[in-house]
Design a protein around this nucleic acid. Structure first.
Lengths: 212, 212
DNA sequence: TAAAAGCGAATGAACATTCGCTCGCAAAAC
DNA sequence: GTTTTGCGAGCGAATGTTCATTCGCTTTTA
């Protein structure tokens, strides 16, 4: 019997997903033909269909990867010693370092999840994971005394997610948008949201003084 | 020559756009066939094509309408006497009152603008209008003394747009999300962003006390 | 009565998916 | 050590469907 082929199969699947991601972020899900994905993956249609039963299965595969990534990120944050620092790290990860291609892909998946129940289910799970992950973080921060107990964590979590989402999309929309510039303000607002106080360390952006 | 037909033509165009919007928000741009739009608009393909030369032209028409709406909204805000109150009004308009269908349509247009240059141009113009509209508002608020002059308006505008965008999308993503609940916090954060101070009037959400 | 508005079957292209095939390898048979 | 054989992997032309768009005709309207 052929052994070790399982690993090879997995590798091949990942290669196909990577090729598909490139195509989709370039031309969108519906603007990309299977032939294009085949070309990008250097593979014939017949062969590709051995790995994925349909085009939709490819998107589902990509969404599944994203879910794994999100879980991974939250695990990393939860383990970090300082809460606000970990948040800052995560914010930088999503808002500055993520490539624009990746963001476009997210737009595509989001639109697709409106009409494909399979994708919608995966997407909903991701959202769910993010929200409960965030709430867990906030709860343990309250327990540790980093956040005062009178804060409504549900609302705070929602606002944080909305804010990060909004900045995330902005990168795809506005080519001039420089994420680095708003990061201090983001941290400052985060601090305000979670404590109701100004933060004296992370000062928000001021207008550049004349002559600067 | 036929006169007054111009107005009728315009009406018919709007009817078609309305029908198309219903279809698109239900099944997405690529999931909707021209036949479906025809059925929704009670019209034959041959006839429909007298009003729009292509499917893309229909989307462009919808995007164009959106542009007009945005301009209209900003004109209304600019005329309002109290700045923060006007902002609150606009926030409510976009985050609470806008229908989920409308939001789905926006997702669709956003994804489409990644591959259709015509749509991309209209979309970029809308973003541009929103940003400059917002900046104008903020500048006149500074002039009036409603906002201290040390605030970096560019950053503040970006953050506000991101926040509203994020909440806007959240409604499409999370069916449990209740916009009304976060509105006070949104206003409080807005105030913080624009003044660097806590707002004593719009208190942000606190955790409901036991027994409430 | 002529122009405008509407009709809907026909057209042709694009595209997801299938199918029958070849190739090369590795283990079984000798 | 050589030959045989069966299978996984890959190929790419062919298939069948879906769908935007067109065109020649009819109906309405002013």
């Amino acid at each position: 019997m052929r052994r070790a082929s399982t690993q090879l199969q997995m590798d091949r699947r990942e290669e196909i997903l990577a090729a598909a991601k490139r195509c989709f972020s370039r031309s969108g899900f519906h603007g990309t033909s299977m032939q294009e994905i085949c070309a990008e993956a250097r593979m014939s249609p017949g062969s590709l269909y051995r790995y994925f039963p349909s085009k939709e299965a490819i998107i589902a595969g990509i969404a599944e990867q994203d879910r794994a990534d999100v879980a991974q990120t939250f695990r990393a944050i939860a383990e970090a010693p300082d809460f606000f620092q970990a948040l800052a790290y995560a914010a930088r990860h999503y808002i500055v370092e993520e490539s624009v291609e990746e963001i476009c892909l997210q737009t595509e998946i989001k639109a697709e999840s409106r009409r494909n129940p399979e994708i919608a289910k995966i997407y909903a799970t991701i959202e769910q994971d993010v929200k409960s992950g965030m709430l867990n973080l906030l709860r343990s921060a309250v327990a540790r005394g980093d956040i005062p107990s009178h804060i409504d964590l549900e609302v705070a979590a929602t606002m944080l997610m909305a804010l990060v989402d909004g900045l995330y999309w902005r990168r795809a929309v506005d080519p001039e948008f420089d994420a680095e510039t708003v990061l201090p303000t983001l941290l400052s607002v985060t601090h305000f949201l979670l404590t109701g106080e100004r933060n004296t360390k992370n000062e928000m952006a001021r207008r550049p003084a004349a002559g600067e």
